[in-house]
Amino acid sequence: MKFLKWVVGIFMSLVAFLFISPILLMAMTSFKHESDVLNPSTVVPKIWTFENYRNVLSWAEEAPFGKWLLNSIFVSCSVTLLVLLFSSMAAYAITRLKVPGGSQFLTVVIFSMMVPGQLFLVPVYFILSKLHWLDTPFALIIPATAGGFGVFMLCQFMKAVPTAIEEAAMIDGCSLAGVYSKVTLPLIAPALATLGVFTFIGSWNDYVSPLVFMDSVRNYTLPVGIAMYQASYYTEYGRTLATSAMASLPLMIIFLIFQKQIVDSMSSTGLKD
């Protein structure tokens, strides 16, 4: 049995290596000279160079990489913040304040989760154009707060948390809003962390909304920016890979810090499209 465990361990390590090898290759190749990039026979660069990175960053007029990064951070942070705030408030109202019609609303919200995202593409575009929000960050932030997943998940979590502490706080004369911010939010912190990380990643990696809703290059977020850069410079793989590596770095760092929450969020929920 112990021998079998070793075999499985080695085999799984190989699988893991297979999964990260494309990432390693990308990272390695981005440090190669442009002439060396298309030569797959050496994985490790013969000469390490920052040339590709320098080229990308120095042609800001061509690819405003810094701008895309700022846009991505701004949009993802705003979406995460608003989703956490809106969802937790709604979940508090439904599960704790038990507003009339709350549970029916929750059913509708859950029902809305099964409507496929593609159906919203055209009408949301239409609505945003009427609001004159196209090509502004609102277009990426506000519609993203309407998803039902956060409310659903927090309701689930809050139902399982005992209400005793909150009731005690009420008796001590705490207002409803006070209970929400001082007692309930800390109580559901683990769920908020999971939801927050999940939302952040989803927003950071979203490709279709910025593709459709943003017109100006300077308003793009990283995924669309990179795809556009690649479409323009498909012959310059070194630069494209350097851009990709830079765009992936922030998420790699987040993954290292929040590994547990990310894995939790995956296990409790879902797959991507």
Partner: peptide, 18 residues
């Protein structure tokens, strides 16, 4: 990091970049 601190951090990031 507490929930509140995290959320304030997010808010600060948004504000500064905004």
């Amino acid at each position: 990091m507490s929930t509140k601190a995290s959320m304030i951090l997010l808010l600060v990031i948004c504000g500064v970049i905004g």
